[in-house]
Design a protein around this nucleic acid. Structure first.
Length: 126
DNA sequence: GCTATGACAAGGA
DNA sequence: CTCCTTGCCATAG
């Protein structure tokens, strides 16, 4: 398994219940700022969906964007709502209200280079 | 190594 | 707000 996949798994596993993140955020935390689409791919092909809170990952527009036939957007909506996240009928979520902002300790856990972490802190003041 | 494929993102129309 | 286009980059074949 690639390091990228492992990081994605670890990050997604650590998203708190009732919070959400965007694909781009996960990519950023995995060390690949522009690999958002790959994050979706990793979740899509993952055979550990039962261990991963994949439903807490949505796109940056605050919309559920899965096309997976086994785990539909409707299913994702219901799981999120069961965690207290409000999803409107058009699958839209107030992402800024529920967005999970990682702290420095969380980033350190991801084993990213120190200078990369400092960049993130600088750029996003987290 | 090259091409096609996306559970994406950002900006324009 | 909703489409559409362009840029992106890890994988699969």
């Amino acid at each position: 398994m690639s390091a990228f996949k492992q990081k994605v798994y670890e990050i997604v596993r650590n998203i708190p219940k009732g919070r959400v993140v965007s694909y781009g955020q996960v990519a950023l935390m995995a060390g690949l700022p522009r690999a958002a689409i790959q994050v979706g791919w990793v979740l899509h092909i993952s055979n550990e969906k039962d261990k991963l809170p994949w439903w807490r990952v949505i796109n940056n527009a605050g919309r559920i964007s899965t096309t997976c036939l086994e785990h539909t957007a409707q299913v994702q909506k219901e799981i999120l709502e069961s965690e207290g996240v409000i999803v409107n009928p058009k699958l839209k979520i107030d992402i800024e209200k529920y967005r999970f902002i990682p702290n420095v300790r969380f980033l350190n856990k991801m084993k990213l280079p120190q200078d990369y972490i400092h960049k993130l802190i600088e750029k996003y003041s987290i």
